[in-house]
Design a binder for these strands. Structure first.
Length: 414
RNA sequence: CGGGACGUGGUGUAGCGGCAACAUGCAUGCUUUGGGAGCAUGAGAUCACCGGUUCAAAUCCGGUCGUCCCGACCA
């Protein structure tokens, strides 16, 4: 991609109101743009990162047997009445058609996935079943917060599992936990698994919490045994496991998993016939990862004083080529020619590469943009590198410069 | 939904009864190029909206809408 063709320029100034540097960088780099309170647009670079996070999530979901589907966002009122959540789920957006029918805008999909599963689940032979989707969710939040942290419209991955018995549900629940940890690890995060309340979903749940001052949760963590529980359900100052003192931390939730058991299979009547011919309720689990919130937390935690410092797997691009001109026409022509050559070379090798071919933009400004946007490798083509027939390479997360040949560049490993 | 703050060129702000200003961004030209360059010229705002007070309102008063922050609520 040629940056001169992008037309979407970074902003020099940080919005004064933004207290979170991660959010300020996302806005300055034009990864996202606010449409109205709690509602955001995703611009080309931000969307690339979102798509990469989604790719990681999809790979890890497929690895534990998840099959991707895409459910409707517009839900009939009747289904939500069956589970009593038309009234009980406060944040449900309710819309009425001009002919009078009421719909809910999907904030979660138990009401849709359970009836859907009835088409396929009749016998114990039809279980287990794992279905997931990545979709825009709607929640009528009274107070959106922290940019993408809490919004009225957000991207979420939701996985639903269906089982014959608790043993199987428990086993899969642990499997999902591990898969989630892999997702976060690939995104450069190390969340803490925390016991939490289940809200309208179930009695208890587990949350994946990333320690950050910008988080809106407070969690208790035992330094001795690692036990962790959300403040909302914790009493006392001692660890219930080992009895040692616990400390409190502010944290941001990036995932939440629930054992729904028969809660929704009862209200929506999802049964199967077991080996003995007996009719039983299917047991369910649901597992969510807020994709857009994940981008927000990653930006907050993985950034420095200049901008975003993403892992290679989720960086918006892997390479950016910066020609460094001298002001002398002949030399500059050669610099342009060599830059174009390197750009073509990387493209030919299917590398994700940006060519910063903007004219009349100083090298300082270009350096700042690379740092702001978190592009993984910065390649400078200058008079100096030209004479050596090498390319200057700098990683975003390191101050060191390396001078590589074309071959070495193509075969760069982390 | 309670409490607080704030709405002024694209963006960020100053002005707080008397000619609407600054920075940045934008346009044109020249000079620049190892960390957000310099000079010159130029375009761009019915000061959120509605009403009131006044000789005179961006400025004071009332209302509406919107945004942000703190609570309550929540992925």
């Amino acid at each position: 991609m040629r940056l001169s063709e992008s037309k979407i320029k970074t902003k020099k100034r940080i919005e004064i109101e933004e207290e979170s540097k991660g959010l300020a960088y996302l806005l300055r780099a034009n990864f996202i743009e606010k449409l109205t309170s709690g509602v955001y647009n995703y611009l080309p670079f931000g969307l690339r990162v979102i798509r990469k996070i989604e790719k990681i999530v999809r790979e890890e979901m497929e690895r534990i047997g998840g099959q991707e589907i895409l459910m409707a966002a517009l839900h009939p009122k009747s289904l939500w009445e069956q589970t009593n959540r038309w009234e009980a789920f406060d944040a449900l957006f309710k819309v009425q058609s001009r002919y009078g029918q009421w719909y809910g805008l999907g904030p979660t999909h138990e009401e849709v996935v359970t009836p859907l599963a009835k088409n396929f689940i009749f016998s114990y032979r039809d279980l287990p079943l794992y279905l997931y989707q990545i979709q825009t969710k709607f929640r009528d939040e009274p107070r959106p917060k922290g940019g993408l942290m809490r919004t009225k419209e957000f991207l979420m991955k939701d996985l639903y599992s269906f089982h014959t018995d608790e043993k199987d549900l428990d086993w899969y629940y642990e499997k999902v936990k591990k898969a989630y940890l892999k997702v976060y690890k690939r995104c450069g995060l190390k969340p803490i698994i925390t016991e939490a309340s289940g809200g309208t979903f179930s009695k208890f749940s587990h949350e994946f919490q990333v320690l950050t001052e910008k988080g809106e949760d407070t969690i208790f963590l035992c330094a001795n045994c690692g036990f962790s529980r959300n403040k909302e359900i914790m009493e006392g100052k001692k660890c219930p496991v080992c009895g040692k003192k616990i400390e409190s931390y502010s944290a941001a939730e990036v995932g939440n998993i629930f054992k729904l058991k028969d809660k929704y299979s009862r209200s929506l009547d999802l049964k199967y016939i077991d080996q003995n011919g007996e009719e039983k309720y299917v047991l369910m689990g649901c597992y969510g990862i807020g994709i857009s919130r994940l981008l927000s937390v990653i930006s907050e935690v993985l950034s420095d004083s200049k901008g975003l410092v993403f892992p290679e797997e989720i960086a918006p691009y892997h390479y950016i080529i910066l020609p460094l001109y001298t002001g002398r026409r002949d030399t500059d022509k050669k610099i342009t020619k060599f830059s174009e050559e390197i750009y073509q070379l990387l493209k030919d090798h299917q590398k994700e590469v940006v060519f910063d071919d903007r004219k009349n933009v100083s090298i300082g400004e270009k350096f700042n943009d690379v740092d702001l946007m978190g592009i993984f490798y910065r390649l400078v083509i200058s008079e100096k590198t030209l004479s050596k027939k090498r390319i200057e390479v700098k990683k975003r997360n390191s101050p060191n410069l390396k001078y590589l040949s074309k071959n070495e560049l193509i075969n760069l490993k982390k």
